[in-house]
């Protein structure tokens, strides 16, 4: 049997439970996560012990030493290079499944931070579009297509995050 494997797994900021649960399932089957790279979408595993391991994705506001110390003291282990903006944490458990967010308001704030980042991306893209149309490059059609596609991508993310927040606000999803 193979001892190590690398798996690509895409995830979205409004649905990190999916990738968190997937990693937990891998651990249950004895595949221990050893590394996360390529903008946090490639996961390396080693065949080892069966573990009960909770994984959590966080999107904090301006994390300093204070942030990392708090998580460390609470028993969380960092699974990335601490560059952000996303941080992956894990913690072994026995009975009660630990969580980093224990109230709805904080989850909504986490989503709002993501929305603000994407809006910034939209503004940068608009600025680039303006530049391209003024400069009129020979390959401006290709660039315009890429920029317009990224606008669609950003729009999709914002809509999804807003819908997620709406569900949280109306208690359709509970923390």
């Amino acid at each position: 049997m193979k001892e190590v494997k690398k798996v690509w797994h895409w995830w979205w900021g409004w649905n990190t439970q999916k990738v968190e649960n997937w990693l937990e399932e891998m651990e249950k089957n004895g595949w221990n996560l050893t590394k996360v790279d390529f903008a946090q979408v490639r996961f390396s595993f080693k065949n080892g012990k069966v573990r009960k391991m909770r994984y959590c994705w966080d999107y904090p506001a301006m994390p300093g030493d204070n942030y990392f110390e708090l998580f460390k003291e609470d028993g969380w282990e960092s699974m990335d290079n601490k560059m952000g903006p996303w941080f992956i944490w894990r913690k072994p458990y026995e009975n009660e499944r630990p969580n980093i967010y224990t109230d709805t308001k904080s989850l909504i704030e986490k989503n709002n931070r993501q929305i603000r980042t994407v809006i910034f991306g939209v503004l940068v893209t608009l600025f680039l579009i303006a530049l391209v149309s003024i400069a009129n490059f020979s390959f401006s059609k290709l660039i315009s297509a890429i920029l317009i596609l990224s606008m669609v991508f950003y729009g999709y993310i914002i809509v999804q995050l807003c819908q997620y927040n709406k569900k949280l606000k109306t208690n359709a999803i509970k923390c």
Partner: peptide, 27 residues
């Protein structure tokens, strides 16, 4: 939870409800 705690502390510090009084070993 640690995420909820960090979020609350950063927000409350920004809003001036709480003040940092010291820094002990990165905390």
């Amino acid at each position: 939870g640690a995420g909820t705690m960090y979020g609350n502390l950063s927000r409350m510090e920004k809003e001036g409800l709480i003040t940092p009084v010291a820094e002990e070993s990165r905390k």
